[in-house]
Design a protein around this nucleic acid. Sequence first.
DNA 1: TCAATAAATGCACTTCCATTGCATTGCCCT
DNA 2: AGGGCAATGCAATGGAAGTGCATTTATTGA
Lengths: 138, 138
Amino acid sequence: MIASDKFLESKGIRPTAMRLLVFQHLAKSKVATTLSDIENAFAKADRTTLFRTLKTFEQKRVVHQIDDGSGIMKYALCEEGCNCELERDLHLHFHCTNCGETICLTEQKIPHINLPDGFVAEDANLVLKGICDKCSGQ
Amino acid sequence: MIASDKFLESKGIRPTAMRLLVFQHLAKSKVATTLSDIENAFAKADRTTLFRTLKTFEQKRVVHQIDDGSGIMKYALCEEGCNCELERDLHLHFHCTNCGETICLTEQKIPHINLPDGFVAEDANLVLKGICDKCSGQ
DNA sequence: TCAATAAATGCACTTCCATTGCATTGCCCT
DNA sequence: AGGGCAATGCAATGGAAGTGCATTTATTGA
């Protein structure tokens, strides 16, 4: 694993202190994270800065945004082998209705769908809702 | 096709004038509809009433809510053969990034996904984004 | 090194939509 | 008719995304 600052630089992102902290916070987290989560983790940080940091990360394909239907956007780091740069990495997400957490199931890809004539798909978002492994007692 | 008021009654919904209008508006529309769409269609109507009408419809399984990632909730009538009462009708939705419309592809079902141990899925939401048939020029 | 320039940050504010509280109206049933 | 509950309308709240602008911090080039 390379150092965070080198990694960000390799993505074309200037590795400021704030950005390194946000990046490392995302790296530690196993679940998708909301803006408010990050805001609470660093009491000193300003919402806007965090917001823009995430937007920058998203643009540079360091994180992807997840809309799990909870009404709040969540963010998660792209995987090592994530081919975000070429095409969207179409793994699915699992939203636990018990604990509210959203998990990237990077192993599970979205199956190919045959669309009616004239429809051209460019992106896909599949969110399963239910009970996660922790909450189901396993 | 049975009359709207009989239909609503059969679903346990009192068929008020407002509700009949909303129902018929949804029935006419081929695409998923936002609260604002309906609000604009009936200038006389109050947002709140429409909002609660939709919530009632949703609860009684007359409409389903669609979160297509546009940030605005949309609603569409459940199909004739929709088995919403027993389990969620897991068809997918197509969101056109050109015209902004969201279409229920009721023929296309969400494929079964094998989840890791401990995960129990109860609901699924699959939204494809791209260009719809009208916008692609077919 | 120092000034000029560009990028990042912080604060205040706006906007948009979902949602709720409460008073009022209208409908149904006895 | 009238009691009671459901539906409606108005006003207000709340939460999250997003924007404008001034300030600070970093980078670059003389």
